[in-house]
């Protein structure tokens, strides 16, 4: 299973419950939504975040269906990896 971690070249801070991440390659600021912020938090942990662990967290927090959560998390993690916020292992 793919694990996503914080890109060591990105910098981030959480303010008011939202993550702000600067990506080095393009010098851009990304403002993550609530879901994205949870994934960002998990990605910074030593375990990183997978589609399964991210979806479990969303189910716990937002009481959404697991299958729907997995779709959202997969899409989100792919997008963050493409934009340099996270790296995929």
């Amino acid at each position: 299973m793919n694990i996503y971690r914080k890109n060591p070249l990105s910098a981030g801070r959480v303010v008011d419950g939202l993550a702000f991440v600067v990506t080095a390659e393009d010098n851009k600021l990304h403002t993550l939504n609530v879901t994205g912020t949870e994934l960002w938090r998990l990605a910074q942990s030593s375990e990183g975040v997978s589609i399964d662990s991210g979806a479990s967290k969303l189910v716990e927090l937002f009481k959404v269906e697991l299958s729907l959560a997995k779709e959202d998390v997969a899409e989100c993690l792919q997008a963050y990896a493409s934009s340099g916020i996270l790296i995929e292992e």
Binding site: P8, L9, S10, A11, G12, R13, V15, D16, G17, L18, F20, V22, T23, A24, E25, N27, L29, T31
Partner: peptide, 25 residues
Amino acid sequence: AQAMSAMCRHILSYAQDPKSGELIL
């Protein structure tokens, strides 16, 4: 959070090295 987002759009910043990104935020 709103102010942070607005402010980051208008500062003259270069964050191509990781330390600068951390310092800006």
